[in-house]
């Protein structure tokens, strides 16, 4: 059974970077979304059990996605991957229910560690 993983970022460059940083051999089916609205639509279709979420996006940003996931109790665990590394941004997203914050550009070793720490991936 592969895990439905959603990569939500407005930049295709960033989406590719995240996809490439996923641990090799992790059994997942990857879906992409270009903004928060598309991301939520995919989550509601069950395509985002694990969500890698950017914060700064047009149409609907990452904060709004986190709010909606919480308000509607959607079945997703969210890992925020953002260039906004201000302490305020990190604490805000954690308060809003994000599992973890990873700074951009994403690094495979760190991403793998976060996934194993939370039991989402085992080597």
């Amino acid at each position: 059974m592969s895990i439905p993983v959603l990569i939500c970022d407005d930049s295709s460059f960033a989406r590719k970077q995240v996809k490439r940083a996923l641990p090799p051999g992790w059994e997942v089916s990857v879906e992409f979304a270009g903004n928060g609205e598309e991301g939520l639509a995919a989550i509601r279709e069950g395509k985002g059990e694990v969500v890698f979420l950017d914060l700064t996006m047009p149409v609907m940003d990452g904060y709004q996605v986190l709010e909606t996931i919480k308000a509607e109790d959607l079945p997703s665990v969210v890992i925020v991957i953002s260039g906004d590394i201000q302490p305020e941004a990190v604490s805000r997203v954690k308060k809003m229910g994000a599992l973890e914050f990873i700074k951009k550009p994403v690094d495979q070793a760190q991403l793998t560690k976060v996934l194993s720490d939370f039991g989402l991936y085992a080597e």
């Binding site: 460059f13 260039g83 590394i85 941004a89």
Partner: peptide, 29 residues
């Protein structure tokens, strides 16, 4: 790609400014 690498670079710059002024810098696209 330029937008994305700039986004990361300006995020680091904003972090320094936020720490200096003890405030939150709103990051644009």
């Amino acid at each position: 790609a330029l937008r994305e690498v700039t986004n990361v670079a300006m995020g680091r710059a904003a972090d320094l400014l936020a720490r200096l002024l003890d405030t939150y810098v709103v990051l644009p696209i």
